[in-house]
């Protein structure tokens, strides 16, 4: 198999694995409602930001979700936001790859949570890095799946025009996570707290 085919099929396989893992999540209405509403919020934010090209809050929201609610929820919010927001902004063969990359952004937030929770600077740097990785990742996949070729010259030729957009994306992530990152994590922690209820024994409540 060619490297291009491995990358393209690997991406599809990662998406399928993510879907299966999310399906196997045990967790009631509360978890499902929180993920759904964060997907909707990221979508609303992406559309609200549409006036500034490639500035959008999806990456930042996916990352903080991953940190606060775990890699699965982060991945679900990133992937879901890609799918849902593209119904407003245009679906195409790019949708699965955006789902994968934003899903990975969310999941990686969860994997690195212990570090990212501790330092605002680390969180901002992580967001900035994802801004660049996201743009590069999109072009790699486009070249792998549809060509013309997965080679360095092709990547440079395709990616050169995307660099300014990637920089805006990275800058947006740095600002959003710098200003709102830590408060958002605290907010999510609060609403994700597991509720444990009980009935007191009858005689005790007399």
């Amino acid at each position: 198999m060619s490297p291009a085919a491995i990358v393209a099929l690997g991406g599809v396989a990662a998406l399928v694995i993510g879907l299966v893992l999310y399906e196997r999540t045990r967790g009631g209405a509360r978890e499902l409602g929180l993920v759904a509403v964060l997907v909707a919020a990221a979508t609303a934010g992406r559309i609200a930001f549409a006036a500034i090209p490639s500035a959008q809050p999806v990456t930042a929201i996916a990352i903080v979700t991953g940190i606060a609610l775990g890699p699965r929820a982060g991945a679900a919010v990133g992937a879901g936001a890609a799918l849902l927001s593209n119904t407003f902004l245009g679906q195409g063969p790019w949708t699965p790859w955006q789902m994968l990359l934003w899903g990975l952004a969310g999941a990686s937030g969860g994997w690195l949570a212990p570090v990212l929770r501790r330092s605002r600077v680390a969180l901002m740097a992580f967001g900035g890095a994802w801004g660049l990785v996201f743009g590069a990742g999109m072009d790699v996949w486009q070249l792998a799946a549809f060509g013309p070729a997965l080679t360095l010259p092709a990547f440079i030729a395709v990616h050169a025009r995307a660099v300014p957009f990637d920089l805006v994306h990275a800058l947006t992530n740095v600002i959003l996570l710098g200003v709102a990152g830590m408060p958002l994590i605290a907010l999510l922690d609060r609403s994700a707290r597991r509720m444990r209820g009980r009935w007191l024994p009858v005689e005790e409540s007399e």
Binding site: G28, A29, R30, L32, G33, L34, A36, V37, L38, A40, A41, A44, G45, A48, F49, A51, I52, A55, P57, A60, I61, V168, L171, T172, I175, L176, G178, V179, A180, P183, L184, L187, L188, S191
Partner: peptide, 30 residues
């Protein structure tokens, strides 16, 4: 651009907060 993004950052927190609230409401309704 930068000031606009910063203003967006100020609003993203109440937006997510209001979303989470709606999320808990809808989970409860479900």
């Amino acid at each position: 651009r930068r000031a606009a993004i910063r203003q967006g950052a100020v609003l993203i927190e109440p937006l997510v907060a209001s979303s989470l609230e709606r999320g808990v409401d809808i989970s409860e309704a479900m």
